[in-house]
């Protein structure tokens, strides 16, 4: 991971900023200068938010050495406000996962650049907290 790459994408990664095409109306992640669907450059940044659901998941045991601390990594195909993306699911053990379950975004560490390097944070998703008072926005 390059320091500059994470830095220039920090809003993208911390706040799940994607792209909305004014021409074809589609929204997708990540940020892009042109629409990946129709090629239009009439695009704007769009925060990907809204109700999130788990469409599919994988429990990844074979990970890079760097990710061994977090293994098994749970990878999720998530739909957020109608936009699909592949991201990590956290705060869940494999037995708690269910296709269709409600999720919510959190900020977590995704990778660490060695013993003395940088910590890379980004949005992941966790099973939505149930119970009273949970203020989804």
């Amino acid at each position: 991971m390059s320091i500059a790459r994470h830095w220039r994408r920090r809003h993208n990664l911390y706040r799940l900023i994607g792209t909305r095409c004014r021409s074809c109306g589609r929204t997708f992640y990540p940020q892009a200068q042109r629409c990946i669907y129709c090629g239009s450059s009439d695009v704007e940044q769009a925060r990907i938010d809204g109700e999130a659901r788990l469409l599919s998941y994988s429990i990844v045991y074979s990970v890079t050495d760097e990710a061994r601390y977090e293994a098994p990594v749970i990878l999720g195909l998530v739909e957020v406000g109608g936009v699909k993306l592949i991201t990590e699911i956290t705060d869940a053990s494999p037995g708690e996962l269910e296709v269709g379950m409600r999720l919510e975004p959190v900020l977590r560490k995704v990778s660490i650049h060695g013993e003395s390097g940088l910590i890379y944070y980004a949005v992941k998703f966790r099973p939505a907290m149930g119970g009273g008072g949970s203020g989804e926005d």
Binding site: Y69, E70, E88, T90, D91, V106, L107, R108, K109, V110, I119, Y121, K124
Partner: peptide, 9 residues
């Protein structure tokens, strides 16, 4: 804290 958490998150 879990493995992907720290005082910042």
């Amino acid at each position: 804290a879990g493995p992907d958490e720290d005082s910042t998150t």
